[in-house]
């Protein structure tokens, strides 16, 4: 019998701690597959954030570090500077990366730090119980925007891929989604390319993945997947924003 499907070697057998219907799990799998494809399991060091993915160190079957809230790109910088021939990635939520960790991500990109960042944008603070994130959509109700996010008070949500693509040190920046199989396949390609950019020493690489939080959005998993398509993608257009091997898109 031919083997047609196998679990990624770069994932452990631990049971994921994510809620039912949360797409963090799909994203973990895509990251693990990219590491497998590169044959980089033994040379990869991952950095887990503060957020729902804090336990990522239990799920990726590679050496891992857990970083303070928002500081994963600085921790990854320290690792990469000490061990330049290793593959180093960060896995961060939108509160972690686009709020408290804004300085660290911008400067990692500005320096062209040869690391890969997987940025999980679910438009909310998942772990702390559904507070407003810098990526929360205008009008979106959260536990700290009970009347809906108001533009006049909080401005508009931050589009990180567009910003990161502007930095000269960025080799690759793309926004993808995992709300249906076709988009999962595209996300897989982008994540793989982001690891290849690092291996080729091209510069900083980030993939923003639109992700669901059914628990804190107050939706069923199916509703949540639909909401990504109907509400998130119109504000967060998918696509490759920069690819140094092809020139800016």
């Amino acid at each position: 019998m031919a083997v047609v499907f196998e679990k990624s070697r770069s994932l452990t057998d631990e049971i994921l701690t994510y809620c039912p219907g949360c797409t963090h799990g799909i994203i973990h799998r895509l990251v693990a597959e990219a590491i497998d494809d590169l044959g980089a399991q033994s040379s990869t060091i991952g950095v887990a954030p503060v957020g729902c993915a804090v336990f990522a160190y239990n799920f990726f079957a590679v050496d891992m570090m857990q970083a303070a809230h928002g500081r994963a790109p600085a921790v990854a910088t320290g690792i990469k500077r000490a061990l330049p021939d290793r593959i180093v990635f960060t896995y961060q939520g939108d509160g972690d990366l686009a709020s408290i960790g804004m300085a660290e991500i911008m400067h990692a990109a500005a320096r062209g730090e040869k690391i890969t960042t997987i940025f999980v944008n679910n438009a909310i603070y998942g772990m702390t119980g559904g507070q407003m994130a810098p990526t929360t959509l205008v009008g979106q109700v959260t536990t700290t925007s009970p009347y809906g996010r108001k533009e006049e008070l909080c401005g508009k949500p931050i589009r990180m891929s567009e910003i990161i693509a502007q930095m000269d040190g960025t080799a690759y920046a793309a926004r993808v989604s995992v709300h249906d199989p076709r988009h999962v396949m595209e996300a897989k390609k982008a994540i793989r390319r982001a690891f290849e950019a690092q291996r080729g020493g091209e510069g900083f690489a980030m993939v923003e993945v639109l992700s669901t939080c059914p628990t804190n959005w107050g939706m069923t998993p199916i509703e949540a997947l639909k909401w990504v398509a109907t509400d998130m993608i119109p504000y967060y257009p998918l696509g490759v924003y920069k690819d140094s091997s092809k020139g800016a898109a």
Binding site: I45, V47, M65, A67, A68, R71, A74, V75, A76, T77, G78, I79, K80, R81, A82, L83, R86, E104
Partner: peptide, 10 residues
Amino acid sequence: NMVYGASGAG
């Protein structure tokens, strides 16, 4: 935090 990363890497 860079110190944390470099130290963790040995």
